[in-house]
Structure formats: structure tokens, C-alpha cells
Design a protein around this nucleic acid. Structure first.
Lengths: 351, 351
DNA sequence: ATGTTAACCGTAAACGTTTACGTAAAATAC
DNA sequence: GTATTTTACGTAAACGTTTACGGTTAACAT
């Protein structure tokens, strides 16, 4: 019941593995009669080439390694799904590793993947990874494509390509949407200042308010660090206890936004009539909470697909991919939480 | 900049790869001086054994393949995370494939994984897979451990081990909880009758009602087939339009339950005062919806870990694992949607 | 001085492929 | 009928390991 090899077929036909191999590959130097006999036996034994042997021979594993902080984040699963689709189309398999926001594990996994002869490495870095930037830089090899997703890390020596969603554009569009809907005092629950991602979103928020001559109140900008529902709830209540209350809250993530919704409800404040709430990422939560949450859609699946396409186009050239930072379009998905005028029908963006 | 091999080290030391290999493995037949010299050079060249070559040599890949229907389901990510933890501990990597509920893709992926020489295969089958039971049965080999997760498929010839959560027990506990809280007319939005999973939950629901002399009204048992929010919403409204209204709704999934919450709100019905809602799976949705949703927790992470442990314990024996069907404990997580008496504090089950 | 043993290392086969090179027989050329 | 080409296949090396087996030298025993 063991797997049949070229040797088995060769023995059965009293020939050599070279001939068998060539016959199966339809090489011209093999006679038709031999080809037929070989194929017949191969079929009979249901021969399948040994992938490991091929890997060794061609120094190519048809495997792509991807590292992410946490699998249970909707956005991560979307990106991975996109990768799986595109990788599958091209005969590649995905090896996965979860870092749990531990930068040392991230470095470990990168090393491991190199040792496992993956053909490319993708990483969705945690914020902390930039703390060991120098170590990371030393680790990255030039012979195997490496791609950083959704985060831009500036190295001293190397330029490593990256792909990310257009958070600045998306945020701008989102804030504009709030302004267009008549909200005048827009607050922002932002991420830590050490996070490029959080900064980009904050800058977009700030710039957009300035450009539109809106009030930019420092009391309305609060740092998150737990990014969970409880934090959103607490911060919403804090915002509502200000003398000069905001009438809209733009949140760094959907989970925080859901917390805000909950906090506002506890404070007896109506959404979207009194206060609008805008999330970020357009996760699956946005459609199930009450009221449904407007959010800035990050094209996870598209990013995943694009990532793999980028890598594959360069795997064969054995050099790292075009050193650009690719930016993918975002989009504001309007739902109930920001719509003073009732929405007609549901906005079912997701399929 | 190419990877260093045994050959490189051997050449540098004017010896042979055999000696180098043995020195690195601290074999007794190598002198200490040679060992030191070899290790020094190996270190200098930062030698790492080639995993592909080892795979070929030992006919072992240290890779485990897992197939699941959809990555973006919270429960799936939980199971996978558990697998990743346990696999990582043992030096195994996970290869993943998403079937999108397509049974032919599932069969395809199984074949592919066999060809890729994975050391074990895990599958979270879609309901449809049982439709091609015979093909599946023929595919499964005896020399590589195979494990079915969260679904029991009875084969004619083979007995394939499986692991699943105790849905019967969990449901029983859940219905009892409803009864204990004074709900007397319990409805059930169930899955299709072709689904073993849905049937188990229904049977538990039915048995528990009978055992407790509760009303078992056929009008209160409705089939779902879309399992999305809209369906839950519509069915809730339908239930509330009955003359003999239920006062509790047990749902096949959290998403459906969230839809029910929404439908009840639209119908102006209070939860949990008028009607209780109980979900299944205890997904991340349960904590963010309003009111928060009581749900039956399936131990995803534990199932993932246990699965890998089972497989690993049998990989070395090159035979399939103990042919039992392992059942993992479930648990009712009580939140607002079933608690007529206000909950004190939040029930933060998840870490 | 010879045999025995231990210490140490090299040779080569094996895992399953692909393919450059060599070679025998058959076919073609003149 | 000999030279040349073509056809068709075998040999062996290569990918990077591990390891059974063999061999050489030196130490030790008798």
C-alpha cells in the first residue's frame, strides 16, 4: 500500500527510471509504444510524483509562508482567504504561523520559514515588530521574496516592499461623510502614537477637519490601548460627560466602535440621531450590531490576492519584488450608525 | 549568499559530508577536535540543515494539512489557533486549504495533501461532504492519520476517528437554563434535516423539553438554510406573529440569533424580558451585540489542540489513530439575552 | 612480532526525481 | 557496403541529507 515511485514502474516494465520519467513527461526521445506502456502502468499503480523529491531537485517548494498576529481577526481571515484563492490557482500551498503580537515569535517564524525553504514570506506585522527593526532587517534575505502587509517599516539599508490599504484616503472619505451628514463635532478614539497605522488615521482625521474648518478639540481625541468593547464603552461615556460634547465618534476599529455604541446606549444617547459612530475595517461585527455600524472597508481579500500575485511574479526571478509600497483602495460603507436620514433597505456590501 | 550545505563545510575542512554530518550530530565516532572544527565552521557559515532533504530522507514532512469550509468563521479560527499552538510546540507546521463548502474541492485538497506528503490530515467537513461519502472513503489511506473534526461520518468499511464538541450535552444544558429561568415556550431555529449536526441539536432540544414536560409545538421549530442575519430576523418576526407565541428562541448559530435579536427589536419585543434568545457556538458576536447573547460555547481552541495531540501520538506508529469519536465538553455562557434577573458585572468568558 | 581492538574517518547507498551525456541499433545516405 | 544520421534508451550525476559498512592507523595485549 506504499506510494509507487518511478522505480516501481521501471521494474514492472524492465526498464530504467530515466525512461519512465521521460515517458511521463512526453519527451520526444521516447517511442510511442514505450510511452503507452509506461503510462498504462503508471495509471494502474496510480503513480503521483513525490513532491518532496521535486522540491529538493528544483530547490523550490511551492509553499508560501505567512505570519499574522491573530487569526481570529476578521480582517486577517479576509486577507488569508484572498491569499489562498490566488495561491491555489497557481499550485502553491500556504504555511501559516500565528505570532500573537509577540515580535520575537515573529522573528522566529521568519527564520523557520527560511529553513523550510518556502518560496516567499508574507507578514502581517504586529506593532511591536518595529521595535526590533534592526534584527528584522538583518533577517530578510534577498533571494526570497518578502512582503510586509498593512504596515510600513522603514529600514536603513534595505527597502522592503509592502502593501497596505489606503487608510488616509479611507479616513478622509469617512470624515467627509460625517461632515456631509451634518455632524459638526467629530471625536476620534485613536491608537497609540507609536503606531504608524494609528498615526496615519489620525493625521487624515486632523487634516480633513482642518481643511473643512471644523472644530478640532484635543479633548475629543483619546488614545486606546486595549482595543476592546469595554474600552470603547468607557471612552464613549467619558466623551459624553464633557461639557462640550462631540456629536460624532470616529473609532480606530469596529470593536471599539461597538463598545462606543454600547456606552452611548447606557448613557441614553441615540445613534445616529444624537451622535454618529464610525468604525474602521468593516468587520463582520458592523452588520450585526445595533444599530448597524458604518465603517471604512479595507479590501482584505483584494490585498491577499494582490500580495500573492506580486510574490509569484517575482519568485521565478529569484529577487525581491519591485520595491514599491502598494496602496489598495478603501471605501466607506454607510450603515445606520451615521445616517440621520433612514437608510432604505440594507446596505449589504459583503457577499 | 546561497544556503550553506554539508558539502560546503566539508570542503572548507578538507573532509567529507559524512564526517560533518556526524560531527554535527555529536556521534561518538568523531573526535572532539574534529567536532569542534566542524561546529565552528558550521556556525561561521550559519549552517541550517535543509528541511526538504530531511523530508525526503526520512519520509516525513513535519507538515500537517488542514481543510476547512470558511476561514472567516470564528469557530474555525479558534480551532486553527489551537492547532497552531500544539503543532508549533512539536515542530510541526500547518498547511491550510479553504473549501468554501464545496465537497469536490474538499476531495481535491485531500488528494493534494497526500501528494504533498503531509504527515496527517485534518478536515472540518462541510455538510455536503457526506454526499460523496463513498469517494471520501476510498480516498482515505491507512498509513497517514486522518481526523474528522466536528462532524461524524459513518463509513461502510472504514472507521475514521473524529472529534467533536458535545452538542447534545451543551444543548441540553442550554435548554435547561432557559427552563430554570422561567421560560416556558421554547422555540428552535434549526438546521436542515440532512445535517447530523443540526439533528443532534434538535434531538437534544426535543428530548429536554419532553423530559421536563414542556410544550413541544411543531410551529416553533423552523428550518434555517441561509444561516445569516436576515434569515434570523425574518424567522423571529414569523414566530412572533403566531397566535401561540414562544417566549424563548434557541438558535442553531450566533449569527441567526443576532438576526433574531434584530427581528424582535423591530417587532417591539423586549429581550430578555419578553423573549429569551440563546445562540450556539459562543462566537465573538455574542459579546458585541445588544443585548449580549447567551450562547453555548464550543471549545474550539481545545478541540484544535486535542486534534493535533491525537495525530502526533499516532504519526510515529504510521497507523491511523484510535478509532474513537472523541467528544469535548461544551458550556452555556450566560449573558443578557436569557437573564431576566439583571446580570451583575459582565461575563467575560473569553480572555 | 603478531593478533586484537579501539578510535576515527571515508565510501557509497538511499530517499525520488530530472537531465546531460553516452551508446547501441536501426534507418538513411551515397 | 560503408559512413552518417536518427531513434531510443541506459548511465550517472545532481539536489542535501543520514547511516551501514569498510578501511586505516595507532594502541594494546600476548
Amino acid at each position: 500500500m506504499t506510494k509507487t515511485t518511478l522505480k516501481d514502474i521501471a521494474k514492472a516494465l524492465n526498464t530504467t527510471i530515466a525512461t519512465v520519467s521521460r515517458a511521463l513527461h512526453d519527451k520526444p526521445e521516447i517511442s510511442d509504444s514505450m510511452k503507452n506502456r509506461v503510462k498504462e502502468v503508471a495509471n494502474l499503480y496510480s503513480y503521483k510524483p513525490n513532491a518532496t523529491a521535486l522540491s529538493l531537485k528544483f530547490q523550490k517548494s511551492y509553499r508560501i509562508g505567512v505570519i499574522f498576529p491573530k487569526l481570529s481577526h476578521y480582517y486577517v481571515t479576509q486577507i488569508l482567504s484572498g491569499m489562498l484563492i490566488e495561491a491555489g490557482k497557481n499550485g502553491y500551498k500556504m504555511l501559516i504561523a500565528e505570532s500573537n503580537y509577540n515580535q520575537f515569535k515573529e522573528l522566529e517564524y521568519i527564520k523557520e520559514f527560511y529553513e523550510l525553504n518556502v518560496d516567499a514570506i508574507l507578514i502581517l506585522p504586529s506593532r511591536k515588530l518595529s521595535l526590533v527593526k534592526d534584527k528584522l532587517e538583518n533577517l530578510i534575505r534577498d533571494d526570497i521574496p518578502f512582503l510586509i502587509i498593512d504596515r510600513i517599516i522603514k529600514f536603513d539599508q534595505k527597502t522592503v516592499p509592502s502593501i497596505a490599504s489606503d487608510d488616509y484616503g479611507g479616513t478622509t472619505e469617512g470624515i467627509k461623510h460625517l461632515i456631509d451628514n451634518g455632524y459638526k463635532k467629530i471625536a476620534h478614539l485613536r491608537g497609540e502614537e507609536s503606531s504608524t497605522l494609528a498615526n496615519v488615521r489620525y493625521y487624515a482625521y486632523r487634516d480633513c477637519l482642518l481643511k473643512n474648518n471644523m472644530e478640532l478639540n484635543p479633548d475629543w481625541v483619546i488614545l486606546c490601548n486595549k482595543f476592546n468593547k469595554a474600552e470603547g464603552e468607557a471612552l464613549a461615556i467619558r466623551l459624553m460627560s464633557l461639557e462640550n460634547r462631540p456629536d460624532a465618534i470616529f473609532c480606530i476599529s469596529d470593536v471599539v466602535a461597538v463598545g462606543v455604541l454600547s456606552g452611548l446606549k447606557k448613557a441614553g444617547i441615540r445613534v445616529p440621531e444624537d451622535v454618529a459612530v464610525l468604525g474602521f475595517s468593516n468587520s463582520d461585527l458592523a452588520e450585526v450590531c445595533y444599530p448597524t455600524l458604518s465603517s471604512i472597508h479595507q479590501p482584505g481579500v483584494a490585498i491577499g490576492k494582490k500580495s500573492i500575485r506580486l510574490l509569484l511574479s517575482n519568485i521565478n526571478m529569484k529577487k525581491n519584488i519591485s520595491r514599491e509600497n502598494i496602496v489598495m483602495k478603501t471605501k466607506v460603507i454607510v450603515r445606520e450608525s451615521t445616517s440621520r436620514i433612514a437608510l432604505s433597505g440594507t446596505n449589504s456590501f459583503r457577499t
